[in-house]
Design a protein around this nucleic acid. Structure first.
Lengths: 369, 369
DNA sequence: CGACTAGCGTACAACGTTGGAAAACACCGC
DNA sequence: GCGGTGTTTTCCAACGTTGTACGCTAGTCG
């Protein structure tokens, strides 16, 4: 049925291995032979059977990317970047959506699910430090995000505390005194929420502003609707506010919505800054200032680290990599005139360090100062 | 190194084929035997080698989804739905981004790129009717979208003309007389733009409104920025407008932006409706009315059609399937009070029909009346 | 009680490719 | 014409699984 190397070999009058050599670019082949083989390949429309090749070579040149949900713009954009980075390195990406399911996240790691790829890039949302043991897997793994520190795997993360602090300080530098934070989770000790909240408090402190619990608007899920709700509740409670740091852009866009419906001007009455710098931030009304956590760099680094483990180039201790992040000023903080382009107003440098298991995940994040 | 069936068989004291039978749920196995095998599997941590299985069975249980770009919310949401639908059927999805490259789209079809999946769901953006020949491939294929009609493949598409007409009529029913259309491409004969523009003109006609070329705002790319630009130009040219039909939601959101910056009230001064019903439409300010083209149904149908071809359940003539689409009324057309939920204000029924190659692709779209 | 049917296991041969080693060939200088 | 030195090609054995064919054991039935 399908045409195999055998058929090509027969037509070209060579052995099957010679065909293989041609296909794989083995250098010592007489030009005449190569030509005959290529003619046969074209003529027969031969395409290599990747499955057989993979069985033999033990490589599939595919990697898995496991994210919570593609409808969340941050993850869609991350997936986009990862696919491009993988593509540039000759890899194909298979996407696994964990859809906010703890069980699904566990499956991703235990390999209960399909297991045909060379490695995994995993951005957990449910698993936490208590699940550290699960991350001790027997395939190449790169962890993304802020939920799990100290896993026996390479880790690409963000400059959360430093960036959140910088964002808060940026609002303070604009003269804002009553800076609310939208999106914290009560009592949460791990993950982006906790880290960014820590940065917020550090920022307040450095700016000499008091911490007022009334300015904390909680939101379980980081969606626009919850952001609008949290912001709305805060305003309706009569809390005085002149600045908002939202823990991600979706929340920030929701907050903009809530502010708008209540007739407050942004940035006139309230300045708003988000986190993630998703595409939408550039097109909202007003355009949204945000923290660019270095998405491109995260994706490329993650793929590079994974490739290094797959190929065995890197066998040393696991690394933790933190890309540079930048504050992008736009209309919502009055950093650009209406219609102007966003521009970087601050940079936090990242870095690379060995990742050791730590009992205090909160403390484990390096803080650029 | 890795543990194989051989090892399991040795430990359980059975033949390798018996292990295979256990793993594959072959029914006639003595419970005692099955238990021994399962014990051995657990003890050794055996996991089947999917590559070897695929080589033997000629199935990978993976399908490819080729879309232009995941950062475009419509495609991200489509991918989300396709992945979920595939997942429910035991398939994994490999995503190929064509990134607006004609060459990449051709590669997807000619299989120059990786070819390890059982079939392809393809949403072309560059290829058109002139490339029909390329779609004659030797693997299961389902085509999405409006660029290519009559390809020798199953096709899931939208009720473009009917839905666009309905959207336009909806604006007219609100008493709007000067309805602009945002996003057309000059002289374009194929694709969503042309079809939706046709629907717009049909809608005007049915409403007894004149067609005024001045009300056509062109936009090459369907991004927010281009939508804002096109709308802005229209307004700055002093064209009188009281309604806007944007050919997709990104354009509509851009248009909202432009209207807002010029101090026009939506829906007071201008009513706006988009197309695609992306998630963002529910959270913009004001919330955006839109056409829901039946995304879930598109995804599920596409996967079902593909599976039927892969398994050989379906060998008959190719089908064209059009899901039902609905107009969702929100604040931007004043269909709901501020803060209210969107609600369906009209439905266009879809259908199934055999797909025949046609020379007039424009005419080939069935129109529900 | 012999023959037949399930039920349960096994042996062997693929699936299409590549790694390794051996063989064939070409060319060199002597 | 011969050994030596590369280059080019071939041969064989995997990679880990499943399909097919068949053998063996127990029942079951006439």
């Amino acid at each position: 049925m399908a045409v195999t190397m055998q058929d090509v070999a027969a037509r070209a009058g060579v052995s099957i291995k010679t065909v293989s050599n041609v296909v794989n670019g083995y250098p010592h082949i007489r030009p005449a032979t190569r030509e005959r083989v290529e003619e046969a390949i074209d003529h027969l429309g031969y395409r290599i059977n990747e499955t057989a090749r993979s069985l033999r070579t033990r490589r599939t040149d595919m990697i898995t990317l496991a994210v919570p949900e593609l409808s969340l713009p941050y993850f869609a954009e991350l997936a986009d970047s990862v696919i491009q980075a993988a593509d540039a390195r000759g890899l194909t990406v298979l996407i696994e959506q964990t859809s906010h399911g703890r069980a699904r996240e566990v499956d991703v790691l235990t390999g209960k699910r399909r297991n045909m790829t060379d490695g995994l890039i995993f951005s957990p949302l449910e698993l936490g430090p208590e699940d550290l043991a699960l991350f001790d897997v027997d395939f190449p793994l790169v962890v993304l995000g802020e939920r799990v520190f100290g896993a026996p795997a390479d880790h690409v993360t963000m400059n959360n505390v430093a960036a959140a602090k910088a964002a808060t300080l940026h609002l303070a530098s604009l003269g804002r005194k009553r800076i609310a934070v939208v999106g914290g989770h009560e009592g949460e000790q791990v993950g982006s929420a906790a880290l960014r909240t820590t940065g917020y408090r550090q920022g307040l402190e450095e700016a000499g502003l008091p911490y007022d619990p009334a300015l904390v608007a909680e939101a379980g899920l980081w969606h626009r609707s919850t952001g609008a709700e949290a912001m709305g509740t805060l305003l309706d409670d009569g809390v005085e506010v002149d600045g908002v740091f939202a823990l991600n852009d979706a929340l920030a866009l929701g907050a903009l919505h809530a502010l708008h419906t209540r007739g407050l001007d942004v940035p006139g009455d309230v300045a708003v800054i988000g986190f993630d710098d998703i595409d939408d931030a550039r097109y909202s009304v007003p355009t949204l200032s945000s923290v660019d956590p270095g998405r491109e760099q995260i994706a490329q680094t993650a793929v590079d680290l994974l490739v290094a483990r797959i190929t065995g180039t890197e066998t040393g201790p696991f690394r933790r990599v933190i890309p540079d992040s930048r504050i992008i000023g736009r209309e919502s903080t009055g950093d650009v005139p209406e219609g102007g382009e966003g521009r970087p107003v601050a940079v936090q440098e990242g870095g690379i360090e060995p990742a050791q298991p730590l009992t205090e995940p909160m403390a484990s994040e390096p803080v650029a100062t």
